[in-house]
Amino acid sequence: MPDKYFSSPVILGAPDAPDLESQLECWGILKKPVRLIRGPWNTLIIKAPNQEVALGPAFARRLIIETI
């Protein structure tokens, strides 16, 4: 994943992974400004206000990420 995604807030979407998209929508972190942090073993930590979520690499690859 390019470094630019980890240096500034991003917007997440997952149109090709409906279950993931539903789950992120439940948590309120879809299509909203969040920060990304590199986790161990290619995991991805999504940091939203008052909320933190870890995704395995298989899910992380399905994300569509846009910088703000």
Partner: peptide, 9 residues
């Protein structure tokens, strides 16, 4: 299934 986990504070 891949990991998807809510991290509590």
């Amino acid at each position: 299934s891949p990991l998807i986990l809510d991290l509590p504070p």
